[in-house]
């Protein structure tokens, strides 16, 4: 192995880690509002990239507008999943397992529909800023990396502001602390559920749009992203959005190191092993779980 690549690879680890972090936050937002773990989270990431690509290339919509349309459309998809799949089960007091299975099935439905509509060719998006990477010391820093980090941090900050200052955000936090008490206070808990799906779908879409220029998107990229996002959430202590973001970056770094040490093929095995390790030894994550 060649250790001189390490800083460069670590840098890309941080980039992808931000993406995992955003997805992880998506898990937390829904979990906090409802206690549900939404396994269709990866579909949002995939749809974000795919819809942006379609807007951009099929309809010639400018990039920034394509991205905005994609985020809006994916949020809508989140609400649809909540209405069509989650709400009926929720009303029937379905078990946690049934809920997980149903959202996983929703993931597959979205994935296969995308395959039928858009085909199976991988697509990619142009880098947001089309310039050669900056050289900092021996390190090549691509502009897309900067976009990813900056946009992720901005998203996290906006989200934190939303939860801290807006009435709706505060209501959602109240649900996270105690749903029954929140309901007694007159907070429409079920509307919060729909909102949490929209919000976490938007997070997934943002993640998908940011990452696609550095790799590709296709109908089947969702599940791996969802799993890594889930790992990020576990590492950060399930239900803690900020923890999930930090967890995502740590996971990205761990994967980067695994690539250097074991080769690129085993990066998923490494991530999954991190997951098992945490589940077995410290299921509450590094910061302790939210509940």
């Amino acid at each position: 192995m060649d250790l001189s690549y390490l800083p460069q690879i670590a840098l890309s680890g941080i980039g992808i880690g931000c993406i995992y972090g955003l997805i992880g936050i998506g898990f937390c937002v829904i979990y906090n509002a409802s206690g549900i773990v939404n396994f269709a989270q990866g579909a949002f990431v995939m749809l974000g990239g795919m819809i942006t690509h379609t807007m951009l290339h099929r309809y010639g919509v400018p990039m920034i507008a394509s991205a905005a349309i994609a985020i809006a459309a994916v949020s809508l998809a989140g609400i649809v999943i909540e209405r069509v799949v989650v709400r009926p089960l929720w009303n029937r007091n379905a078990t946690m397992f049934v809920m997980i299975l149903a959202t996983l099935a929703a993931q597959i439905v979205i994935e296969r529909s995308t395959l039928i509509v858009a085909g199976d060719q991988p697509r990619t998006l142009p880098a947001f800023t089309d310039l050669p990477p900056m050289m900092l010391g021996g390190l090549a820093v691509s502009y897309q990396f900067l976009w990813i980090v900056a946009a992720s941090l901005a998203t996290v900050a906006a989200l934190a502001l939303f939860f801290k200052t807006t009435l709706v955000g505060k209501a959602m936090r109240a649900c996270a602390i105690n749903r029954e008490a929140a309901a007694l206070q007159g907070i429409p808990v079920s509307r919060m559920l729909a909102l949490s799906f929209a919000l976490s779908a938007a997070l997934g879409a943002i993640a998908g749009i940011l990452i696609t220029p550095t790799q590709y998107t296709a109908f089947n990229v969702g599940v791996p992203f969802a799993i890594n996002g889930f790992i990020a959430a576990i590492v950060g202590g399930f239900g803690r959005p900020l923890g999930a973001f930090v967890g995502g970056i740590m996971l990205g770094l761990a994967q980067a190191i695994a690539i250097v040490v074991f080769g690129a093929g085993f990066k998923n095995v490494a991530a999954l092993s991190v997951l098992l390790l945490f589940l077995f030894v410290r299921p509450s994550g590094i910061f302790g779980s939210a509940k």
């Binding site: 069509v84 799949v85 089960l89 379905a94 049934v98 299975l101 149903a102 099935a105 929703a106 993931q107 597959i108 439905v109 296969r112 529909s113 039928i116």
Partner: peptide, 11 residues
């Protein structure tokens, strides 16, 4: 697609 949809409906 049909399996997924059928599973959701069944559940």
């Amino acid at each position: 697609l049909a399996y997924g949809a059928a599973l959701i409906l069944l559940l």
